[in-house]
Amino acid sequence: MAVVVAFKWAPDPQDGRVADDGAIDWSGAATSAVGDDAVAVEVARQTAESLGQEAVGITLGRKNADWALARGADRVIAVDADLAGASDDLRAAVLAALARRVDGADTVIIGDSAVDSGAAVVPSLLAATLGRPGLLGATGVATDGTAITVERRTRDAVVTVKVDGPAVIAVAADAATPRVPGMRDVLMARKRPIETVELAELGVDAPGAELLTSRRTDSGRQAQLFDGADPQQAARQLVAALRSAEAV
């Protein structure tokens, strides 16, 4: 049995170079752990420990395998491909294919936040592709040694549910405090196995949308700045500007 932790590991949207015609170039982008990837691996490590199971990391790209191992994954399966700029559908399909390679991987944990697309749908696509229920926005994951309980905050309640069977749990940024690995963790991690898989081996196929038009939007805001050296005057100028723009 194993607890699988899936890393989204995406390029920083700031590194996507957008041409005037709206074409996006990810070639210069360094991929990095997305904010809650570190939270996901910590939750997975604790859950696996408490259940007496293995914590297996599945990653997009080979580079992040060491990162995951140093933070407590027992082993890592990495797909050797550059998926920067890939669609959420393809990311999820690849992660699902990797999760299927882990025997008895009932629990799959993933960070909940949006990555480059800003849409936070990789966890739900992953749950769908694996054909199992998903729980999004988990603010706490606990076990009693056998069963997993998940805490979520809905609009008007704190809801605790028990998960009894295969599921995908997407954890929010506050579900655990990420560990900062020490030198010992990094050294120990070097002894743990990394299995690298070619993308072609996985045989994944994700449907793509047809792109019709694309354009830059980021030139939209041109700041009108007021000097706060005289706070009263700056405040009046701002309020006047907002009033004439009918924003207040």
Binding site: A223, L225, F226, D227, G228, A229, A234, A235, L238, A241
Partner: peptide
Amino acid sequence: IFGKCDYGIVGDLYAVVPALVSALGE
């Protein structure tokens, strides 16, 4: 943020925020 906003005040928020509250009341 000054490259990503429509309006900005460059100044100490401890002076600017109270000034804004009073300007909004005018």
